[in-house]
Design a protein around this nucleic acid. Structure first.
Length: 427
RNA sequence: GGAGAGGUGGCUGAGUGGCUGAAAGCGCUCCCCUGCUAAGGGAGUAAGGGUUAAAAGCCCUUCGAGGGUUCGAAUCCCUCCCUCUCCGCCA
């Protein structure tokens, strides 16, 4: 959500910023609704004040043993009128809320213009592209040949866009997760958390998945209204929902390994090969909760923390700044980290690191106590994958493949592989 | 799943129809006192919103959530959510 004060004071600037995303803001409609809201609210409050004081007068008169019948009638009429105006206010207020809730975040100044991912801007490249003296295969072929990536069984068990991993490949996947968690908690100062994999509507509203992106989520039946989390961001960030964090507790840096569930609605036919785009995947998520003045630096730090994982795995990658049209609705600015996949002969997204500034915090009512003003103010939230485990597995398979179809275990993962140095080395 | 108890400010905890946005205590902030420390004295200390360019002031709302009764609800009624205790079940 945006600062309502900013909307009132500098509507044109807000509209101009949102237009960069291609979002058309109906300024006239907003102004009309807001003026109506203001008028009704002033009236409601004035009527309430009258009712309150007259009701107290009844109490006094009654205590003094006076006749209160006339007063009671007068206040009763006041109450009827109040109810009517209140109804109008809540209807106008509801419309206004809907407009407010539907507004995307303001983009940071340094987000490049552009409509889609072709306009994203590369920030840096790291690592050497691997060279093969044979024709490299992609992970789907390699995994199938190893007998360790079993998409047919996954289809039988659940459907398309699921995977079953076997043996050393399953272990390699687990090793990646352990490795990433260890690096972030032991070297980057993140506190590890274990969190629910189901979230309620409030939590999903807080981080911005609801109400606009419900079709991307899996809903779960049962008494309550639950959804499978699409990312660990949802439980981690919502830890500060509806709370006021004392300044000396900031920054809060959290890391968690969670599965992620995405319906991938609207992506039919896209990335159908292998396990690149799945309904279920694992991820180590990093979240920062910071003071507003620190969020830009935290964004760089968070992104660098995720990059360390790829550096340690000796994987080539690049970092891109998403352009205006490609930046998610809740984010002010996003860096995507793209890892080199020899099987696709290009860089593909393996992490997305975003600064949400106060957007999620306003939706969550997550505040910190600013000692300079003494007031609770929205804090800033950030998150990024550090990194997606399923895609990291793909990257390792494709980058560490050998001519015979086996896969070398990267040095960084060896401590987690119980002596196994080559996946498929015995076959 | 069965039985019971309960959800009040940062915390503990009073409060069964009006003078209670809320006693008291703890914590915290500021001031006074004290050579330091400890102890003591005083004042302040919820959030959201409206009015305002902003503030001050004034006003409205909020005692788990949502409805209802009433001139008036933390207090009475209904529904839901959550927490705790005991029993059962279970990894």
């Amino acid at each position: 959500m945006l600062d309502p004060r900013l909307l009132r004071n500098d509507l044109d600037a807000v509209a101009r910023n949102l237009a960069r995303r291609g979002f058309v803001f109906d300024r006239g409609g907003f102004l009309k609704l807001d003026a109506e809201r203001k008028r009704l609210q002033v009236e409601v409050e004035s009527l309430r004040q009258q009712r309150n004081t007259r009701s107290k007068a009844i109490g006094k008169a009654k205590a003094a043993g006076e006749d209160i019948e006339a007063l009671r009638k007068e206040v009763g009429a006041l109450g009827d009128k109040l109810t009517k105006v209140e109804d109008s206010l809540s209807s106008v207020g509801g419309m206004l809320d809907e407009v407010m809730r539907g507004l995307p975040n303001l983009l940071a100044d340094d987000v490049p213009d552009g409509a889609d991912d072709t306009a994203n801007v590369e920030v840096r490249r790291r690592g050497e592209l691997p060279e093969f003296d044979f024709e490299p295969k992609d992970h789907a072929d390699l995994g199938a040949a190893l007998g360790m990536l079993d998409l047919e069984s996954a289809t039988k068990l659940a459907g398309s866009r699921f995977a079953v991993l076997h043996g050393e490949l399953a272990r390699l996947h687990r090793a990646l997760i352990q490795f990433m968690l260890d690096v972030h908690t032991q070297e980057h100062g993140y506190a590890e958390a274990y969190v629910p994999y189901l979230a309620n509507e409030n939590a999903l509203f807080g981080t911005g998945q609801l109400p606009k992106f419900e079709e991307d989520l899996f809903a779960v039946g049962g008494d309550g209204r639950y959804f499978l989390i699409p990312t660990g961001e949802v439980p981690l960030t919502n830890l500060v929902r509806e709370s006021i964090v004392e300044a000396d507790r900031l920054p809060i840096k959290l890391a968690a390994h969670t599965p992620c569930f995405r319906s991938e609605a609207g992506s039919y036919g896209k990335d159908m090969r292998g396990m690149f785009r799945q309904h279920q995947f694992e991820k180590v998520e990093l979240v920062h909760i910071v003071r507003p003045e620190d969020s830009r630096a935290a964004h760089e730090e968070l992104t660098a923390n995720a990059e360390v994982i790829l550096k340690r795995l000796d994987l080539a990658y690049r970092v891109v700044t998403l352009c205006a049209g490609d930046t998610g609705a809740a984010a002010a600015k996003t860096y995507d980290i793209e890892v080199w996949l020899p099987g696709q002969n290009r860089y593909r997204e393996i992490s997305s690191c975003s600064n949400f500034e106060a957007y999620q915090a306003r939706r969550m009512r997550a505040r910190w106590r600013n000692s300079e003003t003494g007031r609770p103010e929205p804090l800033h939230t950030l998150n990024g994958s550090g990194v997606a485990a399923g895609r990291a597995l793909i990257a390792v398979i494709e980058n560490y493949q050998q001519a015979d179809g086996s896969v070398l275990v990267p040095d960084a993962l060896k401590p987690y592989m119980g002596g196994c140095e080559v996946v498929g080395g015995n076959t």
